[in-house]
Simulated scan of single mutants.
Amino acid sequence: MSTTQSERLRGLLEPLVGAKDLDLEEITVTPAGKRRVLRVVVDSDEGVQLDTCAELSREISVKLDDTDAMGDGEYVLEVTSPGADRPLTEHRHYVRATGRLVKFQLTEGGELVARILGVDDEGLDLEVPGVKGRKPTARRIAFDSVAKARVEVEFNRKNTGNDSDAEKEA
């Protein structure tokens, strides 16, 4: 997708997404046979309900039909929330992952798997799980020491009361 098209789509869609108190995380256009797929990824601190995605999809469809932002070719519109494997790249992503287990690739090398306990402007307060019966330990890391971060899916996690209703539905 060209930068001009990307900027134009973002300009058209951000007001619609913002009106629903959502963040526009990503816009991608990819070829799919004779058509293209326009994928719009939205999120919020409370997560995103399926009904909200459906409403937003209808509104975006109308807006795109009223403009030539997608050109003349056929396309499929997908409005979705980020998947569990989405990388954490923005401050708000870390805030939303508070209480979750995250795998960090560190800039100095190595990996760290820890639970996010708190987030501020400089970095993260973490709880590193204990190994072989040892107690968890606290650790603080600065954002500039994180090369990559991704939430780890926990299938056997005990409910800590931090899970939102949106996460339970997903």
Rank of each mutant, 00 (worst) to 15 (best):
S2D: 14
S2N: 11
T4L: 14
T4A: 13
Q5Y: 02
S6I: 01
S6A: 13
R10Y: 08
R10C: 01
P15D: 08
P15G: 00
P15N: 05
V17C: 09
G18P: 06
G18K: 10
A19H: 12
K20C: 03
D21P: 01
D23R: 10
D23P: 00
L24N: 02
E25T: 02
I27L: 13
T28Q: 13
V29E: 15
V29P: 03
P31Q: 06
G33N: 00
G33A: 04
G33V: 01
K34C: 02
K34M: 14
R35K: 12
R35M: 11
R36W: 06
V37Q: 04
V37Y: 03
V37D: 10
L38I: 13
L38N: 10
R39L: 06
R39Y: 00
V40D: 02
V40M: 02
V40Y: 00
V41C: 05
V41L: 04
V42Y: 07
S44F: 08
G47K: 05
V48Y: 01
V48F: 04
Q49W: 11
L50Q: 07
L50H: 06
D51A: 09
D51L: 09
T52A: 13
T52V: 14
C53S: 10
A54C: 05
A54Q: 13
E55T: 09
L56R: 01
S57N: 11
R58E: 08
R58F: 04
E59I: 03
V62N: 06
L64R: 06
G71W: 06
D72G: 00
D72L: 01
G73R: 09
G73V: 03
E74K: 00
Y75T: 08
V79E: 05
T80Y: 08
T80F: 05
S81V: 03
S81R: 03
S81T: 04
G83H: 09
A84H: 02
P87H: 05
T89I: 13
H93N: 11
T98G: 01
L101A: 05
V102C: 02
V102R: 04
Q105N: 09
L106I: 10
L106S: 07
T107F: 00
E108N: 11
G109T: 10
G110M: 11
L112T: 10
V113W: 10
I116C: 08
G118P: 00
L124F: 14
L124E: 11
D125G: 07
E127M: 09
E127I: 02
E127G: 04
P129I: 04
P129M: 07
P129E: 13
G130L: 13
G130Y: 12
K132A: 15
R134H: 14
R134S: 14
R134Y: 08
T137I: 07
T137P: 01
T137C: 03
T137G: 03
A138E: 15
A138D: 15
R139Y: 10
R139K: 15
R140T: 12
R140K: 12
A142G: 13
S145M: 11
V146Y: 10
K148V: 10
K148A: 14
A149M: 05
R150M: 15
R150A: 15
V151L: 13
V151M: 14
V151F: 05
V153Y: 06
V153G: 01
E154F: 07
F155I: 15
N156Q: 12
K158G: 12
N159I: 14
N159F: 15
G161Q: 03
N162E: 15
N162G: 04
D163G: 04
D163K: 05
D163L: 05
D165I: 07
A166W: 08
A166N: 11
E167C: 04
E167G: 02
K168F: 13
